[in-house]
């Protein structure tokens, strides 16, 4: 596969196309690619999911571990999100110490999940002040054709919704042999999702292919949910890259995000078990 980035000619072409509301794959500027979700990527995970968003593929696994609570939050379980940009997934990803993008991806997922309080961490206490559950989410891209973060967001919530808390044996150790039927406690009605807007020229698009993503000059990631099933609520945000955004653009996103969220949630629900 190619190591050559999107050319400046193609970038200029995309500026013209976006200005005319067109994309190479025929989508509208604010239209996501179709996606599919599969479960049970690994039966060794307490929950897992694979999302294919166009040709982008991300797998997420959830492991549950017994740990001590953090001293400043003795009354709740712990959450940890990690992951790596496997060199398997793209000619751009290299082995060795993680680059910024590899650090940013799990951090964005972490903030969206943590701030939405979708995981009821207070229900993850095993012994008050001594032992709690740690939820560890690992995010791995398998094929990068752009917009890994939004695919990772979908895979994460799908995996969490199918995560079981393992049984403990008499000594308080995890019993990997017996099958648990106890689901990870999630906040009723809250489904956080990630949406990232990308900017090229004066246009904003969502869900870029890799070619489009490489051409774009600015981006901003939003974590949003239908908070407790009540109303749209933003939980996290991070503007990336050097290009500034205008107030009009920010307001435009606030107008379009709820519909994007509702449409995607509807599609997601078809895959929920």
């Amino acid at each position: 596969m190619s190591s050559m980035n999107t050319s400046s000619l193609t970038q200029e072409m995309l500026v013209r196309m976006f200005a005319a509301g067109k994309r190479f794959d025929g989508r509208k500027l604010l239209e996501m690619r179709d996606f599919t979700i599969e479960y049970n990527v690994s039966n060794k995970a307490e929950g897992s999911a694979r999302v294919k968003l166009g040709k982008t593929e991300v797998v997420v696994g959830v492991k549950m571990e017994v740990a001590a609570p953090y001293p400043d939050s003795l009354d709740k379980g712990n959450l940890m999100v990690s992951g790596d940009l496997l060199p398997l997934a793209s000619p751009r990803f290299e082995s060795g110490p993680p680059k910024f993008n590899a650090i940013e991806l799990p951090r964005l997922v972490d903030r969206m999940i943590r701030e939405s309080h979708v995981i009821d961490l207070h229900k993850l206490i095993i012994k008050e002040g001594e032992k709690v559950w740690t939820v560890i989410i690992d995010v791995y891209p398998i094929n990068d054709d752009g917009n890994l973060i939004d695919a990772a967001g979908l895979a994460t919530i799908a995996a969490l919704m199918n995560t079981y808390i393992p049984n403990l044996d008499e000594a308080g150790r995890i019993d990997h042999e017996s099958k648990s039927t106890k689901k990870l406690p999630l906040t009723e009605g809250t489904v956080p999702l990630s949406f990232t807007f990308f900017k090229l020229g004066d246009s904003l698009i969502v869900d870029p292919t890799r070619e489009e993503e490489e051409a774009c000059e600015g981006k901003i990631n939003w974590g949003i949910s239908n908070w407790k099933g009540k109303e749209h609520m933003l939980h996290s945000c991070q503007k990336g890259l050097e290009i500034p955004l205008t107030r009009e653009e920010i307001e435009f996103m606030m107008q379009t995000l709820p519909k994007l969220y509702d449409d995607t949630l509807k599609k997601l629900k078809k895959f929920l078990k």
Partner: peptide, 9 residues
């Protein structure tokens, strides 16, 4: 030199 247009693979 390629002037204008676009490239893809």
């Amino acid at each position: 030199k390629l002037e204008g247009g676009f490239t893809f693979r």
